[in-house]
Design a protein around this nucleic acid. Structure first.
Lengths: 364, 364
DNA sequence: GTGAAAGCGCTAACAT
DNA sequence: ATGTTAGCGCTTTCAC
């Protein structure tokens, strides 16, 4: 706000208006003790009257805190990021923190300098959502003792504060659902295996196969990277197999959409000819026809939890790193069904107890 | 960056390292004249050597510029926002500006104070993407002479700097495409008519009908708000008409998805029984089965153009407001087809030349 | 061309 | 409980 002469209002103006000193206004502004309730009210009233708003730059320059959190992300335009972003924003708004965006592709400059600019007053902490290769950042962040939290990227090594989801359990639930439907040949399209979440999802898939006594078939595990094109190619590989799978677990919903695409290009219908489970439950998953059976990640909550965790670490930087895994949840919709009874799988399955009717507990 | 003792590096350190003064370092930092090239290089080298990064807070406190742009948006988690966001980010990164996010639902405080905090040093300018009721902001923004640009919300009155798309032409193209396919009864599900873009799209629809000599039928124009639930209800209204439309123009893709939903709930198939055109071309539009025919908005470019315009206005706040409309483009995919020949529309059409074969020029 | 000095608006000791 | 006094790290006059 400005006064009538255009000069910005300062706490000095508020001080004069309320008849106290400079410092007292600052105390009120910062909700500190040692202010008589009566004085506090008078100052607050003066602020109201004047329409005073503190200059954030000055506060952080003087006090060392900016009440800004940085968000480093490789990609902004996905539904995935959008949901996380909203969760973060909610939690931050609650605490009256602002959010500055840093997309990874910005960094034309050296990484060190880049992180340095963050740690030099601009932000009090950093949220990293699936950054491309975080090692470069993490090192200097750790060195500086700068507060940060990883979102959905627990790193291959542990030790960093992180918020993620139970990806392994999710991969397990997806696969088990298919097994319970009667599928035995279940393909999987992997995500970017540099990311822990992709590794975990695959592990969950393997868990479920093992539990059901289905021998793993390397040919049914195809690479992907969470993106449409790779998944489309992967789907064609799977569907082109001499003995194609009757069901596919996709690393994420976007990959699942690609499978539908590839399947329909081959004249296969989902779920009649091919069952399909995605991962994420992005909004589009329920818009699709058929609606996608998928493993929901609580993206909004993950964002909020990460922000909350970061705020805590900003307050107490010495806190030991904490790791949070939020539960995933299988959402059964219309893209999965029992396999077509037609061709009874010949002999490619190598081993395992051929128990055809696993227990129905809990799922599907 | 910090020195070995943990003290942050300042331009004073750089000055000492390079044997010049304090002020000269500042000049180099700001790319100002009156520095001997040789001196400049020496200073730059010292910065490199030390790994110096300027404190942005201090710079803006002293200099009055923050190199930060604020983004005010009502919603962050949509594909729509994501695309715009990316465009903004690209343009800003280019100019080495940072982006601070302000979602509308944050403002628990009074609007005036809210905007004030933006204009008090935090940001040099503000981008407003489809804010809920911008009047409150705009007024105080204008009063302050604070630079801002509206994105995709040209306001009912003109006069604000804004970037949008040719919504009217888009609505026209969508409708005309359907007309050329042979449709005569074309329903429309409106967007939030408080927004100019929704009004324009409807106008385009009406343009096309008029041009084809199809009498407007009020019953075929149903309210919506760009969201799934309202569009779903609207679709049922349309489809439940004694004489339902053979084609529907939806205000946006999300609404179009809802129509597919409602149609399939009624046993209708798209495009065999019902043709459908969306608006936006969000990523999901091409993932859907059937792929959605839609009017593409260049969201990324809109974001980038708005950011660029804002930067220009930050440099020269006195510039007259500029208004930019980026072209929309009809993307014909699989959700539109010629109407089923079965029931030859009885008599509800009131007037107009019943020319059944409009020219095929350009579209289709 | 370069250096010296005065703030930018605020926080945080230190007094009182 | 309140006032006084230094700065925070930088930009920007103004001298030289």
């Amino acid at each position: 706000m400005t006064q009538q002469d255009g000069t910005p209002l300062t706490i000095f103006d508020v001080a004069r208006e309320s008849g106290v000193s400079y410092a007292t206004v600052s105390r009120v502004l910062n909700n500190r003790a040692y202010v008589k309730p009566q004085t506090r009210e008078a100052v607050l009233a003066a602020m109201q009257r004047l329409g005073f708003v503190a200059n954030q730059q000055a506060r952080s320059l003087a006090g060392g805190r900016s009440r800004v959190v940085g968000l480093l992300a490789s990609e902004l335009a996905t539904g995935y990021m959008g949901s996380i972003l909203r969760g973060i924003d909610d939690a931050l708004a609650e605490a009256e923190y602002d959010l500055v965006l840093y997309s990874t592709r910005r960094r034309k400059t050296r990484e060190a300098a880049y992180v340095a600019s963050l740690t030099r007053g601009m932000a009090d902490g950093l949220l990293l959502v699936l950054p491309r290769n975080p090692e470069a950042y993490l090192l200097s962040l750790r060195e500086r003792g700068f507060p940060y939290v990883l979102v959905d990227h627990q790193g291959i090594g542990a030790g960093d504060p992180a918020v993620g989801a139970t990806n392994r359990a999710g991969g397990y639930a997806a696969t088990r659902h298919l097994i319970e439907l009667g599928h035995r040949r279940i393909g999987v399209i992997c995500g970017d295996m540099a990311l822990r979440c992709a590794v975990d999802r695959l592990a969950g898939y393997q868990d479920a196969l093992a539990e059901a006594g289905i021998a793993p078939d390397e040919g049914l595990v195809v690479d992907g990277d969470f993106q449409q094109p790779a998944a489309y190619a992967a789907a064609h590989v799977l569907l082109g197999l001499p003995q194609p799978p009757t069901a596919i677990v996709a690393a994420n919903d976007v990959s699942a959409f690609a499978v539908i695409d590839a399947a329909s290009a081959r004249g296969l219908r989902v779920p009649a000819d091919l069952s399909l489970v995605g991962f994420d439950d992005i909004p589009a998953a329920q818009m699709l026809v058929p609606r996608l059976t998928t493993v929901r990640q609580p993206l909004l909550q993950m964002g909020a939890a990460a922000a909350t965790m970061l705020l805590k670490r900003i307050e107490q930087p010495e806190l030991p790193p904490e790791r949070l895994e939020l539960p995933t949840e299988l959402i059964v919709r219309a893209s999965t069904a029992a396999p077509a009874p037609s061709p009874p799988a010949p002999t490619l399955v190598e081993a395992g107890s051929p128990d055809p009717s696993p227990s129905r507990s809990g799922l599907g």
